[in-house]
Design a protein around this nucleic acid. Structure first.
Lengths: 339, 339
DNA sequence: TTTTAGCACTCTTAGGTCGTGAGTGCTAAT
DNA sequence: ATTAGCACTCACGACCTAAGAGTGCTAAAA
């Protein structure tokens, strides 16, 4: 059942031709372009075999072959050869966000933009799960009359803030509240924050209880919202390049799903990530709407939790290049944010 | 040249029919649905007049009429009747972001989402021009070893922050820097911030100069980035609903322009805003890519500067409804953020 | 036994023709 | 000034045809 050398070569040629042109590829083309030293007729026989094995499909009885999902699978698993990014290209990407490392969020956004531009696919980054991140610093600061700014910094350098109403407070009172927050909430992980804050709220029946209540509410909302808040995407328009979008209606569905971020779920479910840049092809994806696409994504570490970065493109994707670029971005993030 | 009552009635009927169906409307349809008590033949004569006056177009010699840009213009200026949102609808929108007023940015994002869902067009909001906003509070806070968090709060409640590298500092030193920042930069407007910070940097030759330099850089970058950073959009996918997107290529261009935010420019240029919800129709737009669309946008005040909120949709837009919804959102913002 | 040449066959695609129907403009009658 | 009638135009869909690409099979060659 394993592929002999020639079948492998042919399958590889077909995948790569199809990726390049988007047209079903015929025996002539394979024989000519890849000079295997055999005639089209021989290729045809091999192609018939490959089809029977389930690696190729025919759009209709009498036209060239197209890789099936399984065909792509063996291609990415066994056939494809890694590419290295050219020096110029990696330099180009890196320069895209020279002095942009201000904060984690904008850094991730820039990375996603660079990735989408380099690949011409939809790129996404999923920030680190916040459950495992811990609060490193928490401050309540006077912002204007009757309002204070609550700022928290997580161990991975993500900053959240919100404005809350406060009664007039003296400097000492503010100091007192700050000490209280610091002593109770610093080094607490976000999944414990709710109960910790509740406890604090119960204990504190002083005149600050309303302030504490607002703070508690905010802290809780962070974990709730983070699902959507930590997903960034770029290059949505690139999807429309793909010839598989001859009809608009398909795009619509997908775009909506993308916009409201239900794409996340997909990755969460399909998370049997084995190889580093994980690749899921067509029907392998759990979510219906992306069953016509492929996803290449990898993991980066940020503090003690992990995030994901990847691209979503047509099954007819340039996998070697996508893998190289995703991997490059992973490294970029690890390099710049780990310290 | 002014429209007599019947011509007005007919033009109005045609616009509204066309908005509803998207199909060129013929004399029969006008006569039947709007029971003007005249025969199709009469309507035809009037339609011929309206066409000559430039208010109607014919897609081809022998099919119904379609409003021209000028036709839409007189419709929105003189013909259309204001609609009121139903009680349920306004309540629905308002409830969409009940407890979401944490911070200005997420509030604006929610508003845009609500607006895009209610209209089924692309909605956008352009935050207040930052040039005129002033810094109300500025803090440098210890975040972790070797890093500090710089936080600034503007008068309109927008919070910006960034992490910077700092040498080890005692509490007193930190206090000193904070005092310096506060005394020099508080109540300074963002368009002066660069020079002020530079001056501060020149004067301060102490060991903090590197810290100050980083701060200066960040403050400058805020004004530079804000062009893109203060634009939020929602409902991109809605554009694909429009039948004018039978072919995908058109979408592509527009989506790209939308994604990278060059849509801003349009509004900046077309800013001869006279009526409150301003309406620009088709060719009236300065930017080529939106010459096939219409924009309805209004202004909201935030502190002493202003922001814009609006929708972008097909020329064949439900203008009365769009106007009502944009106006409603303006009020919503003014109500919730003015205090 | 494997490869190749040859050939009939299939199926898509583009172009062309034709009939239908919606809607017009014009003319003559009301 | 309005209307009925009528010939005319044009987009659209159905149907057909020819061309071209590619296949599968068979029989000959290596």
């Amino acid at each position: 059942m394993a592929l002999d050398a020639r079948k492998a070569q042919i399958l590889k040629a077909i995948v790569e031709d199809y990726v390049k042109t988007g047209l079903p590829v015929g025996s002539r083309a394979v024989a000519r372009k890849h000079r295997l030293g055999v005639s089209p007729a021989t290729i045809r026989n091999e192609m018939a075999d490959l089809e029977e094995m389930g690696y190729l499909d025919k759009p209709h009885t009498s036209s060239g072959r197209v890789p099936s999902d399984r065909g792509y699978r063996v291609y990415v698993d066994e056939l494809m050869t890694d590419v290295r990014l050219s020096r110029e290209e990696s330099a180009m990407i890196e320069s895209l966000f020279r002095s942009k490392i201000r904060d984690v969020v904008s850094f991730l956004k820039e990375t996603v933009r660079a990735l989408s531009e380099a690949t011409d696919y939809l790129a996404f980054v999923l920030g680190p799960e916040c459950e495992t991140t811990t609060i490193k610093a928490i401050y309540l600061l006077p912002a204007s009359v009757g309002r204070a700014l609550l700022v928290i910094v997580s161990d991975v350098g993500v900053v959240e803030n919100c404005l809350i109403d406060v009664p007039p407070m003296s400097r000492e009172e503010m100091e007192y509240v700050n000490n209280m927050l610091r002593s109770h909430l610093c080094n607490v992980s976000l999944d414990q924050i709710h109960s910790k804050a509740q406890a604090l709220l119960k204990r504190e029946t002083s005149r600050y209880s309303r302030v504490i209540a607002q703070i508690t509410e905010f802290l809780t909302s962070i974990t709730e919202d983070s699902e959507t808040e930590r997903l960034f995407m770029g290059g949505t328009a690139n999807l429309l390049n793909q010839p598989e979008f001859k009809d608009v209606n398909r795009v619509q569905d997908l775009l909506e799903a993308i916009e409201n971020g239900s794409l996340i779920r997909n990755i969460m479910i399909t998370q049997t990530q084995t190889t580093d840049p994980a690749i899921t092809i067509g029907e392998e994806n759990q979510v219906d709407k992306v069953k016509e696409f492929s996803i290449v994504y990898g993991t980066f570490r940020l503090g003690q939790s992990a995030g994901r970065i990847g691209v979503l493109g047509p099954k007819r994707m340039n996998y070697p290049r996508a893998v190289a670029l995703v991997r490059f971005c992973e490294q970029l993030i690890n390099k710049h944010l780990t310290r």
